[in-house]
C-alpha cells in the first residue's frame, strides 16, 4: 500500500477531501499556513471550493453559511485566528451547524510566536466563544492522525450537529511522516435541516435566537445532553504499557510523542512507566483515568502550557492519586532525556 511522505498540515487536507469536504474557507497564519496552501492547490483541482477570506471573522462566518447550506466545510488556523473566530464558533454551536476547525497551536499569549504550545486547550476544549457550548475535540499526534481525524471529522460533526476541532500543534503540523491515505471518498449526505434553495428546504430556519426563556433553557439542556452523550459514544484514547504501570503520563499531541519515548527509556531503567493519550479531549477520557487512578502511584500530566489539561485530569481522578504537572511554555519543548531525568529525580526525592 502506498505511503505518502507529507506534513501534518498537508495530511489534514488529504483527509478532509477524502472525507467528502466540499469547501475550505480560511485566512493564512503560521504555523498553519500549509493547510491553506494544500487546500488552495487541491480543493479546486478536485472540483471543490477554496476561498481565502479577508479575516478569520469572515472565514468562520463562511463556515456558518456553507454548513447551513449543507456543505462539508473546513478551516485551519492558529491561536490568534481562533480568538477571532470565537463569535462564529458560538453561533455554529447555537444553530447546531456541523463544521471542522483545525487549530495548529502556537505560543501565546497575544502575538506570542510561531513555536509550539498547547495553550489553546482551555479555550477550545471548554467552549470557544460565549455561552455554554462545546464541540468534539480530536487531538492528533502524527501526520497519519491529522489525515485520519480529518477523514472522520465530518461524519462526527453531522452526527452531533456540532463543530469538530482538530487540536494540533506547530510540531504535529510541521512534521513529515509517511501517511497512508483512506481509499474511499465519503459522500456528503442530504440534510433535512439544511438550506438548499429549493422547495423542499424552504421552510427550514437556521438560527440561534430563542425568544422564550423556556425555549432557550430547553435549547441549552438539549445541547448539554448531546455533549453528555458523546462521553459514552465517542471517547477515544491510546494506552501505552498501562497494564502494570506505576507512573502514568497523561499527554496529547507532540507532548505524547515525547512521553512515549520517555516511557520506553524509563522501562529500560526499570521504572514502570506508562501513558494514557487522549485522542478526544472533548469528550475527555475521565472514566478510564479514574480507573487507572486506583492502579498507579502517580500521574504526570505533560503539556506545553501553564497547566490546562491537568485540571481535567484532577477532576477525573478526584484526589485518588497524586497528579504532577510537567509543563513548558513560550515554545520550549522538552527532550525525552529531560523528562526521564525529571521523573527519576522526583522518584529519588520520594
Amino acid at each position: 500500500m502506498g505511503q505518502h511522505l507529507m506534513k501534518g498540515n498537508e495530511a489534514v487536507i488529504y483527509g478532509a477531501l477524502l472525507g467528502g469536504a466540499t469547501h475550505y474557507f480560511g485566512y493564512p497564519i503560521t504555523p498553519a499556513s500549509e493547510i491553506a496552501h494544500a487546500a488552495a492547490d487541491l480543493f479546486p483541482r478536485c472540483g471543490k471550493h477554496f476561498l481565502q477570506a479577508e479575516c478569520e471573522v469572515s472565514s468562520i462566518s463562511m463556515l456558518y453559511g456553507a454548513a447551513a447550506a449543507g456543505a462539508r466545510v473546513i478551516t485551519g488556523s492558529s491561536g490568534p485566528g481562533l480568538s477571532l473566530m470565537a463569535e462564529g464558533l458560538s453561533y455554529l454551536s447555537g444553530s447546531e451547524l456541523p463544521s471542522v476547525v483545525v487549530d495548529v497551536q502556537r505560543a501565546g499569549p497575544g502575538l506570542g510566536y510561531i513555536w509550539p504550545e498547547q495553550s489553546d486547550y482551555n479555550f477550545i476544549v471548554h467552549g470557544a466563544g460565549h455561552g455554554s457550548h462545546s464541540g468534539v475535540v480530536l487531538a492528533p499526534n502524527s501526520a497519519q492522525e491529522m489525515c485520519d481525524f480529518a477523514y472522520k471529522a465530518f461524519e462526527l460533526a453531522e452526527r452531533y450537529r456540532c463543530t469538530v476541532f482538530i487540536l494540533s500543534d506547530a510540531y504535529i503540523g510541521q512534521i513529515m511522516e509517511p501517511v497512508e491515505l483512506p481509499r474511499q471518498i465519503q459522500t456528503n449526505p442530504h440534510k433535512d435541516w439544511a438550506l438548499y434553495g429549493d422547495e423542499g428546504s424552504r421552510h427550514n430556519l437556521l438560527s440561534s435566537i430563542y425568544l422564550k426563556l423556556e425555549e432557550l433553557e430547553g435549547h441549552n439542556l438539549h445541547l448539554q445532553a448531546k455533549y453528555k452523550r458523546m462521553e459514552t459514544e465517542i471517547v477515544d484514547f491510546e494506552e501505552v504499557l498501562t497494564d502494570d504501570a506505576e507512573y502514568l503520563f497523561v499527554a496529547y499531541g507532540i507532548s505524547s510523542r515525547i512521553c512515549h519515548s520517555a516511557v520506553g527509556e524509563l522501562r529500560k531503567k526499570g521504572v514502570k512507566a506508562g501513558m494514557l493519550r487522549p485522542k478526544t479531549l472533548f469528550p475527555f477520557p475521565s472514566v478510564r483515568l479514574r480507573q487507572l487512578a486506583g492502579q498507579v502511584k502517580k500521574m504526570i500530566v505533560a503539556e506545553l502550557s501553564n497547566g490546562q489539561m491537568v485540571r481535567d485530569v484532577l477532576l477525573a481522578v478526584q484526589g485518588v492519586v497524586p497528579v504532577d504537572l510537567y509543563n513548558w511554555m513560550g515554545g520550549r519543548i522538552p527532550s525525552t532525556e529531560e523528562i526521564v531525568l525529571r521523573l527519576q529525580k522526583d522518584l529519588a526525592a520520594g
Binding site: A53, V57, S58, S59, S61, M62, Y64, G65, A68, E87, G88, Y91, S95, L195, Y196, G197, S201, R202, N204, L205, L206, S207, S208, I209
Partner: peptide, 13 residues
C-alpha cells in the same frame, strides 16, 4: 429559506 447571522457577518454567510 432563512438563516440568522451574527452581527455584521451576513455578507460572508
Amino acid at each position: 429559506g432563512n438563516i440568522q447571522c451574527a452581527h455584521g457577518r451576513a455578507p460572508a454567510v
